[in-house]
């Protein structure tokens, strides 16, 4: 038995040092050297100060901004330290009610727009931090944002196009629009004198 205890204890200790200390330190060193921007959270800076992350969604409810995916993190939406989805089952009446409320909120902010709402704009994301919406969800909101801001739809559509990414390598994932980048660009387009 003793001939097994010593190897078990020491090998556990040594492999812990190798995989639990040396490995993450080497990975951190390499990451900070080669990809510092990504490794530190892909922060967006304005005037040298971080104003958010490209990767992490923020909550928008003002009609002048594009709204992102609904987030059900608690206690506030898009809570960076409490990620997660609704976990509502497909047959749960609470899910249908939530979707109805979101449709009503979108329509209240944009009276007269009776088009069906793109599904990603009324269903909660898995992380509660989804930074992106589908191009369909962006198009749905262009007229509203343009009207509230007093911009032409073409101007807003151009900003949407700039914040849109296609499928990666042409195949992977889905086309998507980064909501925070788009809203920052909208604000910037109006403060810098249009």
């Amino acid at each position: 038995m003793k001939s097994i205890v010593r190897p078990a204890l020491t090998l556990l200790l040594l492999l812990t040092v190798i995989t639990g200390v040396i490995y993450p330190l080497v990975a951190t060193g390499l990451a900070q050297l080669v990809f510092p921007q990504q490794a530190n959270g892909s922060l967006i800076e304005r005037d040298g100060k971080p104003v958010g992350s490209v990767r992490i969604g923020q909550s928008f409810t003002d009609p002048k901004y594009f709204w992102g995916r609904p987030s059900v993190t608690s206690p506030q939406p898009d809570n960076g330290i409490n990620s997660g989805g609704s976990n509502l089952g497909p047959s749960n009446p609470a899910l249908t009610d939530a979707v109805k409320q979101r449709i009503a909120a979108l329509r209240a902010a944009d009276p007269g727009n009776t088009a069906p709402v793109p599904v990603d704009l009324v269903t909660a994301s898995g992380s509660g931090l989804d930074p992106e919406i589908s191009p369909a969800a962006a198009q749905y909101q262009i007229a509203r944002v343009a009207r509230v801001r007093g911009l032409s739809e073409a101007q807003v559509a151009a900003l949407v196009a700039r914040a849109t990414k296609g499928r990666q390598l042409g195949v992977l994932g889905e086309p998507r629009v980064n909501v925070l980048q788009l809203n920052l660009a909208l604000d910037a387009s109006q403060t810098h004198g249009t």
């Binding site: 990603d120 269903t123 992380s127 589908s134 369909a136 994932g173």
Partner: peptide, 13 residues
Amino acid sequence: LQAGGNMEGKETR
């Protein structure tokens, strides 16, 4: 312009 389908609990990307 969109994936469609059941997007509850899924990420746009």
